[in-house]
Structures are given as structure tokens and as C-alpha cells.
Design a protein around this nucleic acid. Structure first.
Length: 487
RNA sequence: GACCCCAUCGUCUAGUGGUUAGGACACCGGCCUCUCACGUCGGUAGCACCGGUUCAAAUCCGGUUGGGGUCGCCA
């Protein structure tokens, strides 16, 4: 049997990372078994549909490397893969269910339904359809239809008995049929509800493993009843626990940071995000934590999916992202970093590669870059106290001495030799000549060049980045500050 | 509230009757070092609780507590 899985999102907005994870698992399972991964668009709620959302789904999945074998754009033998284009199919199957007695026409309007629900709630009972249209005769029914009364088709849940199904992650689950409701299968607009469309499509599209969020777990018995009513084989169910923001709240749109695109915009790498998401609620059973998509395919197994909700840990994602960034080659990093460097550095005459080099080990996400570079365009105003650093054994006095000597030595470097190697050789030689620790020279120079306590890179790299003229100017400024400093 | 489900460090998790309860992030300390960061070495920290079963329980059973999901002509 060929494994066939599907990702079936509704085009209702941006791509949520929780959905992305579900898509990932479905993709992984299919690829793992050399099966087929299908994309199906569930657009049966015309009111919630958001223009452009389908393209966003395509774009995100492709960017993440989750390519589908069958889908709206690539076609396939079981299309169409957009539910709104399958309207007649659902109607046909709904009628079959009615004929077989497993479903019935219902003419109750919203007002009546609301009233019934209200009454039930007031009585402390669980809201449930009261079966008003359950036993309408076919003549009454036909008369109402002919009269133009709007109708829906509801599933007829057995009055008694239990329904048992098996979920691949949660095991066997049994519920009393009496707790199930006669849900609407076909809406008055002629489109199916999710409850019906997913069953019909999953069967027609030969889906073998239904992978979806846990919110569908409690509805699974109703779907099972539907499969059984049709005489269809029941697929394997894989329900995934939710991704949480904290112990009690789901990661949601309201938090704003649940969007895949937002992460990318902040400088998270797709590969890192996918890697992190894979491990959020799934474990390979080993200590390994870094996986490429191909390696995930190899390692993936349903048995590793956990049963409890998992809290999304931004700190750990950020660490993982940093790991991925550090594995980039200097060129790759430069390319990704440049737009972010340009957010902080407008000077055109700076060596971008040298800036990137100094940033590489210090960047966990690309958005960390701009604030680190705020001293390049303009020297910040800084307190003269910065020159005093206990560990480097610097004081106002020896800082001034170092700066004077450094200025002279650096000024002697030819402009076309202004690079890390030459500057390093010059400054280290100077420390040796002065008979002081390297830090006594390098600390004050770095402070004078940057005006900051912490900087990416040290005096040497920063001097190089700033360029000879600007570096000397800043050292001069530092000397003036020190000269004015209280003794 | 009713029904279903879940429960190992702060977080993600390994663990399927016998382990000094393992790893990772975070946190703390050492080293490296011109700052920060990287790297490296080490440390703190967990089986929610109460009963059973068993020679032996994080692992099995029951209950309590806590948490999640569902209860729409939304998916």
C-alpha cells in the first residue's frame, strides 16, 4: 500500500507555524515511505476566505521545501484539489447518505436553532440539535423543498451504542454515541462543512494517513460513522497536540509572532525553523537535534509524536537559528546579512565583507544585526569613563598614552595597506614597544573608535571597517576627551 | 458544565518494571580573550500528589490535582 498524506489548509490568512508543523509531519511521513504528499485547499467557508492566502500557502510550502505531488496547481488523478470546485461531488454523496438513512434534510432556521441552544444551556444541558427534522416523512420533506424552504443535510448519529476508533498517537478511544451531535454535513449554500468534506475527499483522494491537529480528535468518531455508513475503509488517524504560547494559551494569530513570514522577516532561516518545528512535539528517540529536511525524512516516525501540548520556545529556536547561521559560508552570510547591515550603515565606503565577518559569530537572527552597528555611521557620544577598564588595566593616563602612540603608528600605515593584518601587526608591535599588555593599547583604541562598551569585533577589526581617515579622526577625538578628563 | 485526552528539570524531550533518571535550550561558574560573542570545561535543576500491584514503579492500576481538546450551516 502506498502511503498518501495530505495537508489541507483553509485559505484564511497567513501561514501559522503550528500549521506548518502539521504540513511538515504529513510531508515527512509521505516521503519516508516513498509515498505521495497532497495539497488540498479547504475553502468551503466563503466568509472567512482571505484573498491571496492560497498563494501564501504555495509560497511558504515551497520555501520550506515541502513540495507536493498532487494539488490545485500541479494537478493529479483525484482532482480538483480545491473543495469549492467539488461542490457537486459532495451533494451526490450527501444524497446517498440520505437515501441510506444515515443523514436527513433539516429545515430549521438559525433563529430556531439559537432558541433551542439557549434553552438547553439554561437547563444546564449540553447544546445539541434536538432532532426536530429527524423524522420528517419524505412527502413533508419534498413539499418543503419544493416550497423553497432553505435546507441543510445533517448526519444521523445512532441513538445508542458507542464508537471506537484508533489514533496512531493516542491509541484506542471510545465514546458514547449519545454524546455526539447530528452535525450539518451540507450547508444551505450547498457547500459541505469540514465534517463532511474531509471524509469524502480523504476517501476519494485515497488518503491513507490523516494527519491533523488535535482539535479534530473529538470529531473523529463522527467521521468514522460516516466512513462506515459509506462502507469505506477508515484511514489511519494521526492527531497532533497543539503548539502553545505558554501553559494555557495556544500560539495564536493574536500573538503576531506565530506567522511563518514574520519569522523569516526577523532573520530566522527556513531550515532552522523547520528543524525546530520538527522537534517541537516529536522526537527521533535519540539525542540528535540538528536535521536537514532529508535527514528528517529518514528519521521521522509517527511513534515519536508526543501526546502533550508543546510550548513554543523562542529562545531555543533562536539558539538553533544561530547554529544554522554559523554554518553558513562567509559569502552566504554576507548575502543574507547585507540588507540588515544596510539598515544601520549608510556609508558607502565601508568593507561589507569585513563587517559581515565580524558579525557572523555574533548573530543569532539577522534582525540582531542593525543595533550592533549603530556606531559606524556616526561615533556615539560616550562617557570618558569607558576608557577605564579594570581587567585591561587601563586608566585615563595610560589610555591617553596608548592613543597617542597608536595614532602615530596607525597614521604611518599606507592607505592601501589598511587591513586587519597590517593593523594587527602595527598595534601589537606597539604594545610590545611600550612594554604593556595588548589590552592596554587595544582597549582604549576600541573605545575611541566605537564609543561603546561592547562591540562586534575588537579594535583591529573596527579600525579596518571604519577606514583610516575616520579611525584617526575618532582617535583624535578620544585624546581630546581624555585630555579634558579629571585627573 | 458534559465528554474525550494528557502529565519527567523553567522549556523541548529520552526513558516502556531494576538507570548515579540521559540530552538540548536557558541559567550559574571556570578557561580562551582587546569588549561582546563564538568555542570549551564544569555545575544547579525534574519523575505533580495520594493510594495500590510487585522482591523491585518515572514506567502497571485507581483516585486527586493541574493542563489540553470538543460541544457552530468555522475549519
Amino acid at each position: 500500500m502506498t502511503v498518501r498524506t495530505r495537508f489541507a489548509p483553509s485559505p484564511t490568512g497567513y501561514m501559522h507555524v503550528g500549521n506548518l508543523r502539521t504540513a511538515l509531519y504529513a510531508f515527512l511521513l509521505a516521503r519516508k515511505h516513498k509515498g505521495t504528499f497532497i495539497l488540498r485547499i479547504e475553502d468551503t467557508d466563503q466568509e472567512r476566505e482571505v484573498p491571496g492566502a492560497v498563494d501564501l500557502i504555495y509560497h511558504t510550502l515551497r520555501q520550506a521545501g515541502l513540495f507536493w505531488d498532487e494539488g490545485p496547481d500541479v494537478g493529479g488523478p483525484y482532482g480538483p484539489y480545491i473543495q469549492s470546485q467539488r461542490k457537486t461531488i459532495y451533494r451526490e454523496y450527501a444524497e446517498k447518505l440520505v437515501e441510506a438513512g444515515h443523514a436527513y434534510y433539516c429545515f430549521c432556521d438559525k433563529e430556531r436553532l439559537d432558541a433551542v441552544r439557549k434553552r438547553q444551556e439554561a437547563e444546564g444541558k449540553q447544546p445539541k440539535y434536538d432532532g426536530h427534522c429527524r423524522h420528517l416523512s419524505s412527502t413533508e420533506r419534498d413539499k418543503l423543498i419544493a416550497g423553497g424552504t432553505p435546507w441543510v443535510i445533517r448526519q444521523r448519529i445512532p441513538d445508542s451504542g458507542t464508537t471506537t476508533f484508533t489514533d496512531e498517537v493516542f491509541g484506542e478511544i471510545t465514546v458514547e454515541n449519545s454524546t455526539l451531535d447530528d452535525n450539518v454535513l451540507l450547508k444551505s449554500d450547498g457547500l459541505p462543512t469540514y465534517n463532511f468534506a474531509n471524509v469524502v475527499d480523504d476517501h476519494l483522494m485515497r488518503i491513507t494517513h490523516v494527519i491533523r491537529g488535535i482539535e479534530y480528535l473529538s470529531s473523529a468518531p463522527k467521521y468514522n460513522l460516516l466512513y462506515t455508513a459509506f462502507g469505506w475503509e477508515i484511514p489511519r488517524y494521526v492527531h497532533c497536540p497543539p503548539v502553545m504560547r505558554d501553559a494555557q494559551r495556544k500560539l495564536s494569530k493574536r500573538d503576531g509572532d506565530a506567522s511563518y513570514q514574520d519569522f523569516i522577516d526577523k532573520g530566522y532561516l527556513t531550515e532552522a525553523l523547520i528543524n525546530y518545528l520538527a522537534l517541537l512535539g516529536w522526537s527521533p528517540g535519540t539525542d540528535r537535534e540538528k536535521f536537514t529536511l532529508d535527514e528528517l525524512i529518514d528519521a521521522f516516525d509517527i511513534s515519536g509524536i508526543s501526546k502533550s501540548p508543546a510550548i513554543f520556545d523562542l529562545v531555543k529556536l533562536t539558539w538553533l537559528n544561530g547554529e544554522y547561521i554559523r554554518t553558513l559560508t562567509p559569502d552566504q552570510f554576507l548575502e543574507k546579512a547585507t540588507p540588515f547591515i544596510r539598515q544601520a550603515v549608510t556609508r558607502e565606503d565601508v568593507p561589507l565583507a569585513a563587517i559581515a565577518a565580524v558579525l557572523h559569530e555574533r548573530t543569532e537572527k539577522l534582525a540582531d544585526i542593525p543595533p550592533q552597528l549603530d556606531f559606524i555611521d556616526r561615533l556615539p557620544d560616550y562617557p570618558v569613563d569607558l576608557f577605564v577598564h579594570k581587567k585591561s588595566k587601563t586608566t585615563f593616563e595610560n589610555s591617553l598614552t596608548s592613543l597617542r602612540a597608536a595614532r602615530e603608528a596607525l597614521a604611518a600605515i599606507p592607505a592601501d595597506s589598511w587591513n586587519d593584518d597590517t593593523i594587527r601587526a602595527t598595534l601589537l608591535k606597539l604594545a610590545e614597544t611600550l612594554g604593556v599588555k595588548n589590552a592596554v593599547v587595544l582597549w582604549p583604541v576600541r573605545i575611541a573608535l566605537s564609543g561603546k562598551e561592547f562591540t562586534p569585533g575588537g579594535a583591529i577589526e573596527i579600525a579596518h571597517i571604519l577606514g583610516k581617515d575616520e579611525a584617526l579622526r575618532r582617535i583624535d577625538h578620544g585624546m581630546e576627551k581624555l585630555a579634558r578628563a579629571p585627573k
